[in-house]
Design a protein around this nucleic acid. Structure first.
Lengths: 143, 143
DNA sequence: CCGCGAAACGTGCATATACCCGCATCGTGT
DNA sequence: ACACGATGCGGGTATATGCACGTTTCGCGG
């Protein structure tokens, strides 16, 4: 008999899937808003982070963004190709690949910010900005 | 005071990036938990959805999951390759590709559910389950 | 029946994401 | 100087995601 479990895979909604879904929607919205700037929200985030940190080796950059190291490395590719960042071998430690924000990169950030504010305002109007941050904080430490 | 602009790209945190970050962490947790089942949380979600809906054409399946149509199509590939779903031409409408959950697929869901419950419990212990759902609802409609 | 717009798909391209494995370099103890 | 474990990275593989474009099939009006 259908004991207790599930007639058709237990209907309780999956928290992860819900979160992924929300993220897809939000990302699409930001990407659409940033469209004119030629940046994706992921790229915008990396550039901004770099702007905040200054020249930074890949591994540290990845750690700051809570991104897998190799993912960060690959995400930098398009940015480097477009001259928004420059990647040089570390002076003190030859293993390190130091990522540097170029002038073009700084310009790209500046140009994108108005569009970003747009999206940010639209989304923050729908949810308490703090709620997402709190949620994120609570979830990040979960790993 | 920082009049308006930004000394170094205005420090206000990006809601989208925070959300993406949280999602990465949560997805990693679920994927790790589901590891023994050989399913990713994305795949698990698709199989469960399919279990709930019964045989469904790709476009409708994508709509239900709030996924881009072509993304759904591609996400089905690994599942079909592993025999968890079967894809047949529509009987009434030859344009449609009807996705069907196989016995192996049903078994895979059943086998994965305990692991999924694990992850679900761990995450829901850190955030109100309703909070994520509410957030998702608020954000989804934003597009 | 013919043509035509609409609907359902697939493909190519680009990015995002993570795991595993291997390579080069660093620092350190001997 | 040297062997060795630790560290910083890249490459290969696989999935996830979405956009632009092209193809096939439907349904319909003429």
């Amino acid at each position: 008999m259908s004991d207790e479990s599930h007639p058709r895979a237990s209907l309780e909604p999956c928290t992860c899937s819900a979160l992924r879904r929300a993220t897809r929607a939000v990302t699409t919205a930001y990407d659409a808003a940033l469209r004119p700037s030629g940046l994706r929200v992921t790229q915008f985030a990396i550039l901004r982070l770099l702007d905040r940190l200054g020249p930074t080796p890949v591994t540290r950059l990845a750690a700051e963004a809570a991104l897998e190291r190799t993912t960060m490395g690959r995400n930098l590719d398009p940015l480097e190709r477009r001259g928004l960042v420059r990647i040089a071998a570390g002076a003190v430690d030859a293993r390190e690949r130091v990522v540097v924000l170029t002038e073009a990169g700084r310009d790209a950030i500046a140009a994108a910010i108005p569009y970003w504010r747009d999206a940010q305002a639209r989304i923050n109007a729908r949810v308490a900005p703090g709620a997402v941050a709190a949620l994120a904080d609570a979830l990040i430490s979960a790993s």
